[in-house]
């Protein structure tokens, strides 16, 4: 199983605590590090690498987005197609969050609390969306619902159009963001154990009451973390929805697809400004992740 992100960074900013000492003042981060030169060089390498790889490119976006003045950028991002795209982006992301939160909780409960044949295989399946190429994701829903697809008759029967339409995009978005909630919840659920739940049962709580009042509050931080990651991943999806949705302006075009089309049409200000909006949303997401992380540590 892939280690969930919130796990990966628990206590990340905390210095390592020497076990032998009781006083918080005595927390040790290798201050014994003799070769101060080497230490300085290592820190410098990392800082330079991160700055060059992450900070500089992000910063480069700002001047470009406003290269024709703020007015032009404003016009570009408030054009009807840009706004429709942003709306679709949010609708898809919210839908992915809702579906994957519900099923993520179910999946996590089943994977942690039950033993069944083929569990390890199922466990591997859950990780697949992390690594399947978005292009393949879009394509497989096209194959499934397109002409001659296995589920095309069913969709026709119900009367919804999946391929080259928003339901297909929604499926693709749900697919790519599927693992996050489940993966964040699993270790916390495992750690929490079943004693609390059993205590609730002995106190007369029903299954449902126990879930709402004991289990869910116990994992709420991890859940929040998972939801944030789900949202971020869903919002940023591009390849899968490009293929399954067909990127029809004003209809099946999300913000990322809008950027892509604007680039093709050499409408750079529109592309860069929208990219900036998405980057800013990412910052907000990142900030909320940090916030949840801090809370977790308290």
């Amino acid at each position: 199983m892939i280690t969930p992100f919130s796990r990966m960074k628990a206590f990340a900013a905390e210095p390592t605590v020497g076990k032998s000492t009781v006083y918080p003042q005595l927390r040790r981060v290798r201050n014994s590090g003799r070769p101060n030169l080497a230490r300085g060089v290592l820190i410098a390498i990392v800082l330079i690498y991160v700055t060059a790889l992450i900070v500089v490119p992000v910063m480069a976006l700002f001047p470009k987005a406003f290269s024709n003045g703020i007015g032009a950028s404003w016009d570009a991002i408030t054009s009807i197609n840009a706004l429709l795209a942003l709306r679709l982006t949010f609708i898809l992301a919210v839908a992915a969050v809702v579906v994957n939160t519900i099923f993520g909780i179910v999946l996590a409960m089943v994977m942690v609390r039950q033993n069944f044949w083929g569990k390890r295989f199922v466990n591997g399946i859950i990780d697949l969306p992390f690594v399947v190429s978005p292009v393949i994701v879009g394509f497989m829903f096209l194959v499934l619902f397109g002409r001659g697809g296995w589920l095309a008759p069913t969709a026709d029967f119900i009367g919804i159009k999946v391929a080259f339409s928003w339901p297909g995009m929604m499926l693709a978005t749900i697919f790519v963001s599927l693992p996050f909630v489940c993966r964040e919840l699993m270790p916390v659920l495992k750690e929490m154990g079943i004693e609390h739940e059993q205590a609730a049962y002995t106190l007369g709580a029903t299954r449902w009451q126990t879930f709402w009042r004991v289990t869910l509050p116990g994992v709420r931080r991890a859940l929040l973390y998972g939801i944030t990651l789900t949202f971020a991943r869903a919002m940023g999806e591009f390849g899968a929805i490009l293929i399954v949705g067909g990127a029809i302006a004003g209809k099946t075009e999300t913000s990322t697809l809008f950027i892509f089309r604007s680039l093709d049409n050499r409408q750079y200000v529109a592309a860069y400004s929208t990219a900036l909006i998405l980057a800013l949303i990412s910052f907000v997401v990142l900030a909320s992740l940090e916030l949840v992380k801090r809370k977790q540590r308290e």
Binding site: V58, G236, I259, A279, F283, E290
Partner: peptide, 12 residues
Amino acid sequence: LIDLPIAIPTLV
């Protein structure tokens, strides 16, 4: 900052 790439759309 290390988490930023998780949040930024790859297209961006």
